[in-house]
Design a binder for these strands. Structure first.
Lengths: 235, 235
DNA sequence: CAAACCAATCTGGTTAACCAATTATAGTAT
DNA sequence: ATACTATAATTGGTTAACCAGATTGGTTTG
């Protein structure tokens, strides 16, 4: 087989094509939950692609929980019926890269929840971690330095204290993209940062006092500017 | 080097160890955004693990947006400062597998948002897709068949119509796990399903009439049982 | 007749060799 | 001294060979 280096976009397109072929195969053969897929070798042969490409595609579907591969045994359809499997793969193929607005919108939604949960559930240790993140942030701002990273770490500390591992994971996945875009669009410039200290402190105090309602209110205040800012950005 | 097959858990542990070593290296060398990591070969040699293990670890960090590898060039630190990078890798290493309650809690949060957004933003095409999902669900229930899959696809259709690609992705990632656990805990048994038809129809109508507040209310009603059910499950 | 055993085969995972694009280096001409 | 070019080394990606555990079918044994 001929070696060929593909640009990342085409590589993604290839992987999507393979995923789509796997879906077609599952449909054609009417595979049920727990059924075994053909081996990676056979798939790569019948799809006329390399085995590593097939492996990548399988890994992606495994990430979404649709397949499950067992060492020295085979790759199996997850405990999901063919209807859901089919619909979900179709959805995955259509997924587009998240835009900035959708990221911010989601972040606000998640954080209004985490801050309430953190106020309800935080342990003493988690509270201390939040406090430390707050101090690190304040120190930077007082020195006139850029503190976008410390800002985000404060919010991540709250997410960790929410006791909801799913939301925590989601927050982690969107944070880098947010940081990048913040720098790009010059959100959160230094003039805003000074106000940010007090806002952060208010949030911290509400969590400390285990007042979920107040915590949410303070977080809303904190997001108000961000909200306005982001909805004014050109696409 | 000796070939050794590892159980999945140990493999995960190994990957975490490698990730942690990458973090340490970045700290030790004070790598800034855009700086280049040593080549995969050098890393695998200095960590005394195979190159494919290193590649896996890098891919994971790439998924979280912390690294960026360019073909025939190198692997680079993303446009994130070392503080955030360090904090986030530490968080990632601590991540635990999501529990069922956290999944349901998150799903409810996300869906109360998607249903409102869908009522505001849905196109005619998206509305039609929701309707088709609703019909497929109703038909199954009327025939006395299990309709968990069609149920979830209805909700995914709403997520798609929300116009928020981030939330849409999140919904896709948690759905398989939810389906599996539903089957495991016998949530949504047939006796509930008949009520479900009307509840789904109410939600659909609210979205059709572009009434976000009503849509949210109806979704809340729909989740009421689920909510109670899930918080009574033993851990 | 059923259970236990064994060897051939098949599997996903791992390793090592290979590829071509990129980057660094040395040399040459201006 | 500088700008440009050719060449060698380096890189992430790809392919193919290899590994050992799992499966399977047939045979033996109680």
């Amino acid at each position: 087989m001929k070696t060929e280096i593909l640009p990342k976009n085409e590589n993604d397109a290839l992987q999507k094509e393979i995923i789509s072929k796997i879906r077609d195969y599952i449909n054609y053969k009417n595979l049920e939950p727990g059924d075994k897929l053909p081996s990676e070798r056979k798939l790569s042969e019948s799809f006329e692609v390399s085995r590593s490409n097939v492996r990548e595609a399988i890994q992606t579907l495994e990430y979404y929980g649709l397949l499950k591969s067992k060492p020295q045994s085979g790759t199996f359809v997850a405990d999901i019926g063919s209807v859901a499997l089919n619909g979900m793969i179709t959805d995955i193929l259509r997924l587009e890269k998240p835009d900035f607005k959708s990221l911010v919108e989601t972040r606000i939604l998640l954080e209004l929840k985490t801050v309430r949960l953190a106020a309800l559930r935080r342990t003493k240790e988690e509270l201390k971690e939040i406090e430390e993140a707050l101090e690190a942030y304040s120190k930077k701002v007082m020195n006139g330095e850029d503190a976008v990273q410390e800002d985000l770490l404060f919010h991540l500390a709250i997410a960790k204290a929410s006791g909801n591992s799913t939301i925590n994971t989601f927050m982690l996945t969107i944070t880098p993209e947010i940081i990048t875009n913040f720098a790009k669009y010059h959100v959160c410039d230094k003039n805003i940062a000074f106000i940010g200290i007090q806002e952060h402190r208010d949030i911290y105090e509400a969590i400390k006092n285990q007042d979920p309602q107040l915590a949410k209110e303070k977080m809303k205040v904190h997001f108000k500017m961000l909200y306005q800012y982001c909805y004014n950005i050109k696409d």
